[in-house]
Design a protein around this nucleic acid. Structure first.
Lengths: 195, 195
DNA sequence: ACTACTTGCATCACGAATGTTGCAAGTAGT
DNA sequence: ACTACTTGCAACATTCGTGATGCAAGTAGT
């Protein structure tokens, strides 16, 4: 394994390709290498030089996005700050990443992918955070941390999809994060209403 | 336009193909006509006789699923019964359909598709139901019906995805519907907790 | 300035999926 | 039983996406 170091321009090209892949595949998941290359402003052959196969490109893309996500979670210090603060901070950070890498984060990852490991680690930290919230009696009794995470992920996914459908209107990440956390904790109903 | 009536066996074949397409594409969205035909137990040429192109098949599939959904909503009589009852009933009915036609309901529909019209009508009825809930003070002030529907759809999508990932464990539709409605209204948090 | 790397372009090979057609066998409906 | 429809099978043409290669021009880094 000769670790060839990348020349500066080449590194820029790789990033451009990844970003173009994200943008293009987000709009059309069946987009071809040709289209991705065009969006990146390079020739198709250049893409193939950097990523031997389409699968290799997808792998790199998902791994890259997963790493961005993990970094966003890290930045919120979810095990150091009070759980509610951490939840809010993490939500804000994650939203920013998910908005830029929506496709890469929702695409099914190939088994054995590095991204799988990273995402699993994020899930674990998320569950740990919800466990801390449960300990602090912030979660309603009978609610499992698993269900919490699922609802939380679903809400995050929803707001990102929506933002993605309206690319013109730029949105206030903080406001959206608040809305997500509020809804996660209290839903949309008046307190005390039951079936 | 000569409306050729279908022979009984042919009608059965068409349904088998639609169901096979749903099943197959749900597991692998890039499945080929060949695979769909195999899953339906027919030859590939037969599929092409019923649906001229792949796009035509997808169109028929999404339209069929949308109609099933609309029927499920109908059966709940959402404008006749008290809104909370209707919400619960509709959730139960919709869940059953969404579990069987998950792919067809989440796939992006081609513009001008009949399914588009039907789904839009369902959305309208959904919004109307949430408007009734708001009138009955069951919705928290400041919560828009639009946000309600988005959260509601997200929760439905989430539980279906989960059920889909675990096809072995059959689930209690009523219990899941309750969980969805409960979470929609009250979230996962203890009442009174704020940021 | 010199060298090594990178890129664009043209071209080719290959495989896979789509869509079509003709024919023979079988089945629904009368 | 008779007819019309439907199906399976085999074969074919075509298109499209993928991946590889050789060569000339250009650029980064020293």
């Amino acid at each position: 394994m000769t670790e060839t170091r990348l020349r500066a321009d080449s590194a820029r090209t790789v990033l451009a390709i990844l970003e173009a892949a994200e943008r293009t595949l987000n709009r059309k998941p069946t987009a071809t290498m040709e289209e991705i290359a065009a969006a990146a402003g390079v020739a198709r052959t250049t893409v193939h030089r950097r990523f031997a196969t389409r699968e290799a490109l997808l792998d790199a893309l998902t791994t890259w996005a997963a790493q961005q996500l993990a970094d966003a979670v890290d930045a919120a210090r979810p095990e150091a700050t009070p759980p509610l603060i951490a939840l809010y901070q993490a939500t804000t950070n994650v939203l920013a990443v998910k908005l830029s890498w929506g496709f890469a984060m929702n695409t099914a990852l190939a088994p054995g992918n590095e991204a799988e490991r990273i995402q699993a680690a994020v899930v674990e930290r998320c569950d740990a955070l919800f466990a801390r919230l449960a300990e602090a009696n912030i979660l309603r009794p009978g609610i499992t941390p698993l269900w919490c995470r699922r609802v939380y992920y679903a809400l995050l996914h929803e707001v990102c999809q929506d933002a993605n459908a309206n690319p013109d209107t730029e949105l206030d990440t903080d406001a959206v994060a608040t809305q997500v956390v509020e809804t996660l904790l209290h839903g949309v109903g008046t307190p005390g209403t039951t079936l």
